[in-house]
Amino acid sequence: MIAPEGILSRLKDLPTLSAAAVRLAGLARDERSSAADFEKVIRPDPALTANLLRVVNSAYFGLRCRAESVRQAVTLLGLRRTSEVAAAAALAPIIPRRLPGYEMEASSFWTHCVAVAVLSERLSTELGVRRPDLTFTAGLLHDVGKLAIGVFVADSSSEILSRTREGGMTFVSAERAVLGVDHSQVGATVAEAWKLPPAIADVSRWHHSPNETPDKADRLLVDLVHVADALAHSLGLGADVGEMARKVDPATEARLGIRARGLERVASESLEEIRSLAHEFAPGAGGTR
């Protein structure tokens, strides 16, 4: 079992998301925000500015004209998309070269983050449901707890793996059984510590147990990320040591009314987007010690 102080001390070691990205997430939800407000936050951050311009001009967004300035980028992309790109630009550099415990390289973790972001959005389109605010960003950050809990998973790795491989437990249940906490709970704590919007913490906390989502949270958002996460793992988009030891909640399937064919269409139509977007950023430059 990990003492709660142990987790909290890891949080202090964790690099934080750039303040600009966090402020943009807030601005994007405020209907009084303008492109000028965005510009004021972005321009002082050279790394964010460079990443934003590169991504805006990438094939993923398929813009007809080239954005040369932050103002143009924000105008062409829209405020919501800009804040999503900023979240991606902020997350990529803080992923460690290798995630301890989960036995995955930065590139693999990053692919998974981007895959869940893109698949969650695509799923909402396929189902014809409203697209909740922050779908992309919540999908992108759903596993952020793995950055903080990895060292503890590594210490108890054989015990966790024997529960999944011999005991038939899901990886997240095995984490909880052995460590007393799992990456989804820790992820919510990380999101709160980083002062991210509450929806991000909610998705992190319930993405493996969508049925427990309380009424005050956006259950549709949690359901979408839950399915997208399972689909990404099924397709091998970011495989970790937990492999396919995970479950899909039948209640989520029923709520979303999703069919096998729909799921396959989502997969086929998202793959290239995931690749091209993941390619725009180079993860693993820094990260936890």
């Binding site: 399972a230 793992h233 099924s234 397709l235 396919m244 030891a245 096998a260 396959e264 997969a267």
Partner: peptide, 16 residues
């Protein structure tokens, strides 16, 4: 052609 746990329905991509 692997599968997630309890994989009988919509997620049986591997089986298909």
């Amino acid at each position: 052609g692997g599968a997630l746990y309890d994989d009988k329905g919509i997620f049986s991509i591997g089986k298909r």
